[in-house]
Write a protein that binds this DNA or RNA. Sequence first.
DNA 1: ATAATGCATGACAATATCGTCACAAACATG
DNA 2: CATGTTTGTGACGATATTGTCATGCATTAT
Lengths: 228, 228
Amino acid sequence: MHTNILIVEDDMAIREMMAFSLKREGFDAIKAASGHEALEQLNRVHPDLIVVDWGLPDMSGIDLIDTIRRDQVIKEVPIIMLTARSEEQDKIKGLERGADDYLTKPASMLELMARIRAHLRRSKGFEVSHTLEYKDIVMDASAHEVKVNELPVNLSLTEFKLLKLFLQNPNKLLAREHILNHVWGRNTFVEDRTVDVHILRLRKALKPHARDRWIQTVRGIGYKLASI
Amino acid sequence: MHTNILIVEDDMAIREMMAFSLKREGFDAIKAASGHEALEQLNRVHPDLIVVDWGLPDMSGIDLIDTIRRDQVIKEVPIIMLTARSEEQDKIKGLERGADDYLTKPASMLELMARIRAHLRRSKGFEVSHTLEYKDIVMDASAHEVKVNELPVNLSLTEFKLLKLFLQNPNKLLAREHILNHVWGRNTFVEDRTVDVHILRLRKALKPHARDRWIQTVRGIGYKLASI
DNA sequence: ATAATGCATGACAATATCGTCACAAACATG
DNA sequence: CATGTTTGTGACGATATTGTCATGCATTAT
């Protein structure tokens, strides 16, 4: 299932960063750099949640929220508002006018993702699946489940994290050090070769589905997930 | 796919540096040293993005932006403005007048590249792949993949680095020492002749596609990648 | 034409890197 | 506590990669 999130944010760097994080988490990000762009997008699609920056160039975020809440079709959509620290008092106005939540910038992407999930869970009444897909490998990260060709695959935690990293970066070459940093963490002291062993285990787990060859070895650097 | 970037910058050192970085990243750099030169170039080509220095000798960068934004054909092109630190307040004017982003000089090339990619992603609607191309040789550096005529080519790490160097400097004569420095590193002690052997191996790898003759020998100096 | 130089090529040995297994420690589970 | 699972590491063989050399061909200079 697709879960569309609309980002309304004029600062390009923040907007792109949020879109990137959302895509990583398995959401579909729709971007708008201004209030008017946001309204245009809303004519096209009905997102499952909206993140709005307070300080937009053309209209204030609050005007945008007003407009949305007056719309018959999408008025129920959860809205998370972003404010700069200097606009602290505005958040009260925002919440009064119809925002469901607010976050102070600079916001941690992790926190934003957590709140987005929480709101989606509430509004949809069920846990929004956090799925990552590549060809016929489907990972539901929130359920901690992996299926290949509809058939469940049993993975240990490390194998799961490893596969997740690959699914988040399909077709990209991942160096061993990069893999170590993202699966084991930055401050752990684990041998390089450990990665190889876990790659082996992950490949073994995928083998019954003949998908083990999708993790390719790039000699001298690391591994990558690719279909050829 | 070619992605043309127009650089408008009067300082030759900065201009050439940017052009060099852009080519390294797989873009095609078009250079202009003044506003009028830029307009001349725009008559010829329609770049995918423009980087403009604020302080140009003949017209201010802002006048150039104005002119571009009035043009019927290219008015939508993303523009990134460069300002010196002392012209901080000018950036606001720049953004009001139609620049999409600004950077303060001296800018880190890495940051400039990141912003260029982000803007291209937005304006083109898709990720501009980090690819190097020459005729029908296509290298995707992030996936560590090389294709000739759409067909994948298997290369060892050294061969890959060697081809990358050639693709970053097409039509340029590369001396053996230059090749050694860039592929093997500055402090390694490897015989000159070793380059020849690796050139041979690279040619062999490209041979099935009849593209091995694209690496030409320049007797007494080194090699170059060229189509004739 | 002939010698001299530089390059292409194949062979080779040394090395680096990887896949795989086995094992022990840590951990979880009942 | 007993059992099973997960995890990190060392060992070892298989394989890929790499640098060097010897030889012969091509090009250039005399």
